[in-house]
Design a protein around this nucleic acid. Structure first.
Length: 296
RNA sequence: GGCUCGAUAGCUCAGUUGGUAGAGCAGCGGAUUGAAAAUCCGCGUGUCGCUGGUUCGAUCCCGGCUCGAGCCA
């Protein structure tokens, strides 16, 4: 709690870190100390029906303090970072109007980045356009991108179909070069970081992996399987949640429970590593090292 | 007890007609502003079970041993 809080008033404070690092408890602690309210910045805790699988805060925890943006979407509802920003901004504003401090907690780096750095002046995704691109071979898309915006084509990883599609989508929707639009925005974004405050939790790998394993076990024992069974048909969006496919394949008998558990663990570890890589680049975040003994 | 097969990367296995070995998964590192718990990129030295022998040279061939699986008693 050594955070420089005074100059910031009711400016939000961000609590980030890899999955299973203990963000929720730290957020609770911070919110209590700063007279705050908690705002979710986790892409999947936004949905209801996935509380166990996504390790959402428990009812007991939610009862302690106001929690916002947890379980507000129907499973299967489409979401993206821009829409998240539009939802979160007013919520954060209202908390501040009440004279309280928003404590934004979550591990979805892209969503957080929209909140902290704002949206780039780029068009949102166009489902029809994307559907059309999906049926075309990647080389075809790459060729078109090279033609419309060679600079962007040289920057984007051309093996990454998603990124190629997105770059092309921007060009087609705006009639401008995606690279130009991005450059304009990135040159403006630098100054904002001095006004941000936040914490990124760090833990030793072995510690984090142990916590992940314990949490996976608790999820499987604690109802995640029933949760997935109940959602088995809905799904398009939830399918991407770690554990969803693994549990579903257990439910159909393709995978033994022990294998299912190990696969979830592995996927979660890999996700945690991607998160560490992401947050390491956010230099404005103040690292906080937690040890196994803190186990919070 | 006898016979057969196996023993190679953390795991599952491939391979070397004798010139010290490579895939998948795991792991590690990275990218990432509207699908992000997504998507994508890069990284492979390990007493080739141990021990003798043959050979210029053995992980590979031969003997013994250890462990595991199976079959016969």
């Amino acid at each position: 709690m050594t955070l420089k809080s005074a100059p910031f008033g009711t400016d939000p404070i961000f609590i980030c870190g890899p999955t299973a690092s203990g963000k929720s408890s730290l957020a609770l602690e911070m919110a209590r100390a700063l007279d705050g309210e908690i705002v979710n910045a986790d892409a999947f805790q936004l949905y209801h029906g996935l509380e166990i699988l996504t390790a959402s805060p428990s009812a007991d925890e939610i009862a302690l303090l106001p929690h916002h943006l947890f379980g507000v979407l129907d499973p299967g509802e489409k979401m993206d970072a821009g829409r998240y920003l539009r939802m979160a901004k007013p919520v954060i504003g209202e908390i501040q109007n009440r004279g309280r401090t928003p404590v934004v907690v979550g591990g979805s780096g892209l969503y957080l980045k929209f909140l902290t750095h704002g949206p780039a002046p780029l068009p949102e995704g166009d489902p029809a356009l994307r559907a059309g691109m999906q049926s075309r071979p990647l080389e075809d898309l790459v060729a078109q991108l090279r033609d419309l915006d060679p600079v962007e084509a040289s920057r984007v990883s051309l093996q990454n179909r998603r990124y190629v599609e997105r770059a092309l989508e921007i060009c087609l929707l705006t009639g401008e070069k995606a690279s130009d639009l991005r450059d304009r925005w990135e040159s403006k974004t630098r100054e904002t970081e001095s006004k941000l405050r936040g914490i990124v939790i760090r833990r030793d790998r072995a510690d984090l992996h142990a916590r992940i394993a314990a949490r996976t076990k608790a999820m499987l024992d604690g109802g995640a399987i029933d949760e997935v069974a109940a959602l088995a048909d809905v799904a398009a969006t939830c399918e991407k949640a770690i554990g969803f496919r693994e549990i579903r394949s257990f439910l159909t008998g393709e995978t033994a429970l022990a294998d299912c558990e190990e696969k979830i663990n592995a996927a979660t570890r890999q996700y945690a590593k991607r998160q560490e890589t992401w947050f390491r680049r956010e230099k404005w975040l103040e690292p906080r090292f937690l040890q196994p003994l803190d186990h919070s």
